[in-house]
Amino acid sequence: MRRIIFGMLGLSMLLASCANTSQNNTSRLDLIKNRDELICGVSGKIPGFSFLGSKGSYQGLDVDICKAFAAAFLGDAKKVQYRPLTAAERFTAIKTGEIDLLSRNTTFTFSRDAFRGNGLSFAPVVFHDGQGLMVKTGSKINSIKELSGKSICVGSGTTTEQNINDAFEVASLPYKPIKYQDLNQVVAGYLQGRCSAMTSDRSQLAAARSGFKNPSSHIILDDVLSKEPLAPASDGRDYLLADAMRWVVFALISAEEQGITQENVYQKLQMAQENPQLKPMRRFLGVEGDLGEKIGLNNDFVVKVISATGNYGEIYNRNLGPNSAVPIPRGLNHLYSNGGVHIAPPFN
């Protein structure tokens, strides 16, 4: 009896203390500015998105998005601290305040966004993806049907885990999910023959394959099991931070629409300053009006962002373009005007 009472007591203390970290009424944005550093949650294991490059620094599309946020919030893209997180850790890391925001190939879904779900807030999508399956070329598996009853390696705590189940249920096929904590383990399980296939977002399959000894002996099946719009996320209770993040991502897209690049941004700024009639560009670059202030940033935040990372298209090309280490055709990720789905609302 005594043991039970002490156990329960200890338990309640533990719980109360871990719950105690939730926010008070100031925005995380102020905290970031006071700290003068942005803590950004990333995967750290996916070439092209976020991984430790040869120089010991993080690189990739998700990393560049972190840099864009740091440039907008702090005026310096280098003031970022990266925290590698597994899929299952990432939401708790936001909710407990361990990180400021997440830029980690995270799919924007209803439940994750919902106040009474995971309670996150999503910035605009930075990469439109879809779930796929990778198998060995010699395995004679060409579609999901031939995977009936087979083992499939999958990462736990992901949309992947649910989608693969949905797909097999719809097709009324049995299968065995072998669930691992992170991508490296999923890859190891697959390469060592524990599973007949591995499943993840197709971008991740391509990225993983680029690191294989023999990339050509693996194929990504044509089946696309789901939509995986990947977007940065933050704590849903903090609408000030969410607003700021939303408009930084839109700024990247809008800059591409307007042809403003890392190289020409200061020329464009000068042009805007000299020509009062170029109203939209003056507002966008903060020469006129107070758009930045309205979201708690400096009015010239767009200039800071674009000079640090370039526009969305430049970020894409640097990390996933034809000359990068993980070339992924741009497809849906083109601007709306080029047949893709990225479009920015007006900066008015």
Binding site: R112, N118, S156, G157
Partner: peptide
């Protein structure tokens, strides 16, 4: 439990 937490929050 890990999976349940990420799905339900």
């Amino acid at each position: 439990n890990d999976t349940v937490i990420t799905q339900t929050g």
